[in-house]
Simulated scan of single mutants.
Amino acid sequence: MSRVLLTGGTGFIAAHVLDVLLERGHSVVTTVRSAQKGQTILDNHPKLPNDMLDFVIVEDIAQPGAFDKAVVSKPPFEFVIHTASPFHFNVTDTQKDLLDPAIIGTTGILKSIKQHAPSVKRVVITSSFASIINPSKGNNPGYEYSEKDWNPITAEEAVENPLAGYRASKTFAEQASWDFVEKEKPNFTIATMCPPMVLGPIVHYLQSLDSLNTSNQRIAAIMTGKAKEEIPATGTFIWTDVRDLALAHVKAAELPEAASKRFFVTAGYFSNEEIADIVRDNYPELKDKVPAKGTKGGGYPEEGIYKYDNSKVKEVLGIQFRSLKESIVDTVKSLQAVGG
């Protein structure tokens, strides 16, 4: 058993990471922004003593020294999994709302670990396919993306709009973490996770449809009638299930051979049209809301789509990816449970 600090514990991905950590026997302290959120997590794991699951409050990850106290523990932490970073487009100031929390939050926690938590051996950081893709190339048919690729976005482009700001926040934060390790030579190694669209069931006690994570909003739209006339464009055509991504995070902490590696965590292709087909075929009670077969929109681009190489995730971390059908069926079930 190892002791793990998990940041952003009420987030969509982090909630699943927490479940995997506990299932695998680790003791966990998770950061939250308020005592109320921390208590919600504890209340939903009532059989676990505080030495197996506890929380610490970090109100603003972009503040200097925000994690200084959080990284100190008895017994000391061996691993840190850093998932806390904004992913939304409800932005008034791209620099303040997206770039600063992601970049300062990531470098800040690495500084705090180096200064105050010498026992930590591995830090796993949630990055994104946004730090790999080159958006200027469009769908880039024939090109194969892998961990070797970096989004070439510039600081000037980053503040042009919220989507550019999000992609830049992930790119710059991940680059800053690799730069930190190279320059500071801390006691720990890092591994970064670069997932594309993250789908899959929500952890019921944390979410309602009102606060649904951005990736799953497309499924909610299809099952609640909002896409009845036209299926929205898919946008990003590769995906992963949140449960597979959570396991990848934990294995990247546990396995020595994951040190100093980026992981492009994707199960493969999907389209919004395929999601509609799966919901329609598996939930006949929703047929009046789900777009009918042949409804326009949501398909693949005619010119083709980029390829992907996910071999490192399979070979190093041993991840076997769930099917799109399993992911969507389970997601709809979880959304129905919170009022979908």
Score class of each variant (00 low, 15 high):
Lys111Gln: 14
Ser112Thr: 13
Ile113Met: 09
His116Pro: 05
His116Asp: 08
Ala117Phe: 06
Ala117Pro: 08
Ser119Thr: 15
Val120Phe: 08
Val120Lys: 07
Lys121Ser: 00
Lys121Leu: 00
Arg122Met: 09
Arg122Thr: 08
Val124Met: 07
Ile125Cys: 10
Ile125Trp: 05
Thr126Ser: 12
Thr126Glu: 07
Thr126Asp: 09
Ser127Ile: 08
Ser127Gly: 13
Ser128Pro: 09
Ile132Leu: 13
Ile133Cys: 14
Ile133Asp: 07
Asn134Thr: 14
Ser136Ala: 11
Lys137Gln: 11
Lys137Leu: 11
Pro141Trp: 04
Pro141Val: 06
Gly142Val: 07
Gly142Arg: 05
Glu144Thr: 15
Glu144Pro: 00
Tyr145Ala: 01
Tyr145Pro: 01
Ser146Trp: 02
Lys148Glu: 10
Asn151Asp: 13
Asn151Cys: 14
Pro152Glu: 05
Pro152Gln: 12
Ile153Leu: 11
Glu157Met: 05
Ala158Glu: 11
Ala158Tyr: 07
Val159Ser: 10
Glu160Trp: 01
Glu160Leu: 14
Glu160Tyr: 01
Glu160Asp: 13
Asn161Val: 03
Asn161Ile: 03
Pro162Lys: 02
Leu163Phe: 15
Gly165Ala: 15
Tyr166Glu: 09
Tyr166His: 13
Arg167Cys: 13
Arg167Ser: 11
Ala168Lys: 09
Ser169Ala: 14
Ser169Tyr: 10
Ser169Pro: 07
Lys170Pro: 09
Phe172Gly: 06
Gln175Ala: 04
Ala176His: 03
Ser177Trp: 03
Ser177Lys: 04
Glu182Ala: 15
Glu182Ile: 01
Lys183Thr: 09
Lys183Ile: 01
Lys183Asn: 12
Lys185Leu: 05
Asn187Trp: 00
Asn187Met: 00
Phe188Asn: 06
Phe188Val: 05
Thr189Arg: 05
Ile190Gln: 01
Ile190Ala: 03
Thr192Arg: 04
Met193Val: 13
Met193Trp: 04
Met193Asp: 04
Cys194Glu: 14
Pro195Gln: 13
Pro196Phe: 06
Pro196Thr: 08
Pro196Asp: 11
Pro196Ile: 03
Pro196Ser: 12
Val198Trp: 02
Leu199Ile: 00
Gly200Thr: 07
Pro201Asp: 06
Pro201Val: 03
Val203Asn: 10
Tyr205Glu: 12
Gln207Trp: 14
